[in-house]
Design a protein around this nucleic acid. Structure first.
Length: 390
RNA sequence: GUGGCUAUGGUGUAAUGGCAGCACUGGGGACUGUGGUUCCCUUAGAGCGGGUUCAAAUCCCGUUAGCCACC
């Protein structure tokens, strides 16, 4: 068993766990910084290690298109290529198929689409996507799935959900039959660990579809279960409802991964429902665009109130950015489109996200997650209401 | 001193005599399994004084300033 449930919070559904992957053990709940193209934008691997990142996400679709699998194979796999020796979770490209809707054709066999880079035609199948991820040397693989837009009529959601289950089955089969060498090279933290494969629960906003999908996937048997098709435009409370009900249908002894989510509030709420893993572009993308996450809420440091503000981004943060630089200076960098601005805010935001998860884990281990959540939300709303003071 | 040219948001520039537009800057917003140095919204303008005309950034006169040429 690759996942150990270490502790269940007594007053909520939050849980503490350890997930054993080929390149290391991951403490959950965890946030995984997004490194789509084999890099967490604006950050070096050294930065990520300083921030205590335990696992990052990469995207098989993007890397398959550019630089191409041969280049990465030649480099000895994605870990060596990007000089990251901790676990990597790869997304299949299922989401890109969804977000690049204009360029695609979906059928039971797989997805046909045109490259967003050069327009060339490609076909993704559940099998090819597994092969790609094995070639990359991924620790945790995601199967090809079909994500639908919000709102989505029931029939359409059901078709996509059934296809996702079929594809999940084929993915598991493909993984077990693949001839690509597994994670058994010398020097790995857990050489015996195989590549982990998660199932993805679809079903849009329909609780019965989510339930059916979760149960069918559990029957097939995966190393973890993802909640997909969430945060695609639905209102906040609906998002929490789906997460909560879906978690109830998932087996407790496996990790749960809420894909693509989210804001600090989203994550804390989802941990409360029993979610263990997250990934999201928000800390890095917002960072590049000048929004900073602090323990008192988010601030847009690019804006004029901070022009002469010599305080750190977050007075309660211990990261090197907050030690060495002022809001005034960082605002200037962002305003002048200097690269360092994006770097510093991205670093701080990733540090913040990982600290948030670390605090959540500490709280769960002491059965005080509910209090932690309350305190977090109380403090986090300050920037919104008292901008002039913060 | 004489002649010529020019004058439009903070900056740089458009517009047959017919709703003064664009870019940058300034001010805000957006961003959720990354097509993002991105995207959206927005403040702000005719050197000054007259005249012609239904109507003037546009035509005419004067004036001021800048530039160019000549003396």
């Amino acid at each position: 068993m690759s996942f150990n449930l270490i502790h269940q919070d007594k007053n909520s559904n939050a849980r503490l766990g350890k997930l054993k992957a080929a390149h290391g053990v991951i403490d959950t709940p965890i946030f995984m910084p997004v490194g789509t193209q084999g890099t967490v934008k604006a950050l070096t691997v050294r930065d990520l290690e300083e921030c205590s990142a335990q696992i990052i996400l990469a995207n098989a679709y993007h890397l398959y298109l550019r630089p191409g699998l041969e280049v990465i194979k030649n480099a000895g796999g994605l870990h060596k290529f990007m000089h990251w020796d901790k676990p990597i979770l790869t997304d299949s490209g299922g989401y890109q198929v969804f977000s690049l809707a204009k360029l695609r054709k979906v059928a039971d066999r797989g997805v046909e689409f045109q490259s967003h880079i050069d327009g060339s035609k490609h076909t993704l199948t559940p099998e090819s996507v597994i092969e790609t991820q094995l070639t990359l040397g991924s620790d945790i693989l995601m199967p090809l799935d079909e994500c639908v837009h919000y709102p989505c009529v029931r029939d359409e959601a059901e078709v996509a959900m059934r296809r996702t289950i079929q594809w999940a089955k084929r993915s598991k089969e493909a993984l077990s039959q693949s001839r690509i060498p597994r994670q058994n090279e010398v020097g790995l933290a857990y050489p015996a660990s195989r590549n982990l494969l998660f199932g993805i629960v679809q079903g849009a906003t329909y609780p019965d579809l989510r339930k059916y999908c979760a149960e069918e996937l559990a029957k097939i048997g995966f190393d973890g279960y993802s909640l997909g098709g969430i945060s695609v435009g639905e209102p906040q409370d609906l998002l929490y409802n789906i997460v909560q009900t879906t978690c109830e249908y998932l087996p407790k002894e496996f990790p749960r991964y809420l894909m693509g989510v989210g804001t600090p509030e989203d994550m804390i709420s989802a941990v409360d429902c029993g979610v263990d893993m997250f990934d999201c572009v928000v800390p890095t993308r917002y960072g590049r665009n000048g929004t900073v996450f602090t323990w008192r809420g988010k601030i847009v440091v690019r804006n004029s109130p901070y022009i002469n503000d010599l305080r750190p981004l977050d007075e309660e943060c211990n990261c090197f950015v907050c030690r060495d630089y002022s809001r005034s200076y960082i605002r200037h960098l962002l305003n002048a489109s200097e690269i360092l601005g994006a770097i510093l805010v991205s670093y701080h935001n990733i540090y913040f996200y990982l600290s948030l998860m670390e605090k959540a884990r500490a709280a769960i281990s002491e059965d005080r997650f509910s209090d932690f959540k309350k305190e977090f939300f109380a403090a986090y709303s300050i920037a919104k209401t008292k901008v002039e003071d913060y």
